[in-house]
Write a protein that binds this DNA or RNA. Structure first.
Length: 272
DNA sequence: AATTCCCTCAACCGCGATAGC
DNA sequence: GGCTATCGCGGTTGAGGGAAT
């Protein structure tokens, strides 16, 4: 598609917002809401592009924005969440009421990264530090494994495809990868930590689908204990445990944290 | 007091995802 | 199903201000 010209090319204003512009934007949104950001500046009489208006509202003008320095508790939460989610700032922001992804990203780059470096704080699970570089190296795609089992999960952001495989071809190799049996007789391997972090919504919804019982019977049929294996510890999680967690899963982060703490593999979040 | 350096953070850019036609 | 418009996200930039020289 042809990208819309940027603000400057359209003769629209850029740079810092004035108090007057803020006032106009706030009062417009209070009256009309922000259904269509692209149309908003024209309706409100602002010489800004919709993108700029949206950003200004989200990051600065929203009434529920919490201003001021981050507390130690908030910083520790960000560090903890960053260990689990990586640079998914919006996901992290969703766990910190009143804070924006942009703000968290800034705080991470200006304070927390340095703090971690200074304190030599490596990410930890169950009290053991994780050498991420080693992890990523060891869990790189093994071409032979991938071709022989039609296993998926290439790329780093999402499981890209799920091909049906015979149960016998789904092997668990706890020393190198996580292998998970799903409800529709597909097999996926989590090849690196990024993949793991992305599994929660796409993949687990499949594992945890209504037909979950089949996943368990499938595993039993091939003589494998119904279990999900996670290479960090290694951590073993019963599929039934996953299933139980599904019933009260309010969101993926709660789900994962509860799951791991139930399995005794993650410490409770430290008291600040 | 003037200049330079460094840090912070608001704002922008580019791209992928998604909705709507 | 393909195309287009829009949104939302993560990475990056650069102005402004404080600290150091």
């Amino acid at each position: 598609m042809v990208r819309a010209p940027c603000c400057e090319k359209m003769g629209l204003k850029r740079g810092p917002w004035t108090a007057e512009e803020d006032r106009i934007l706030i009062s417009h949104i209070q009256v009309y809401g922000h259904g269509n950001w692209r149309a908003l500046p024209k309706q409100a009489g602002l010489q800004r592009c919709g993108k700029s208006c949206r950003l200004r509202w989200i990051n600065y003008l929203r009434p529920d924005i919490k201003r001021g320095n981050f507390s130690r508790e908030e910083e520790d939460t960000i560090i903890k969440l960053h260990e689990m989610l990586g640079n998914r700032w919006s996901a992290i922001a969703a766990r910190l009421p009143g804070r924006t992804d942009n703000e968290i990203k800034n705080v991470w780059h200006t304070h927390l990264k340095k703090r971690l470096e200074q304190n030599h704080l490596a990410p930890e699970i169950n009290g053991r530090s994780i050498d991420v570089s080693r992890f990523n190296h060891e869990f790189k795609t093994d071409p032979e494994t991938v071709s022989s089992s039609n296993v998926v999960a290439s790329g780093c952001d999402q499981i890209q495809e799920h091909r049906p495989v015979s149960p016998q071809r789904c092997s668990s190799d706890i020393s190198s990868m996580t292998t998970v049996e799903t409800s529709n007789n597909t097999c996926a391997k989590i090849e690196n930590s990024d993949d793991f972090h992305e599994m929660d919504e796409v993949f687990w919804s499949e594992v945890l689908s209504a037909d979950n019982s089949r996943a368990i019977s499938d595993l039993s049929a091939i003589g494998t204990e119904p279990q999900l294996q996670f290479p960090f510890s290694p951590l073993i999680i019963d599929v039934e445990q996953v299933h139980a967690a599904n019933s009260n899963m309010s969101d993926s982060m709660d789900f994962w944290y509860n799951l791991f703490t139930r399995a005794g593999e993650l410490p409770e979040l430290p008291e600040i």
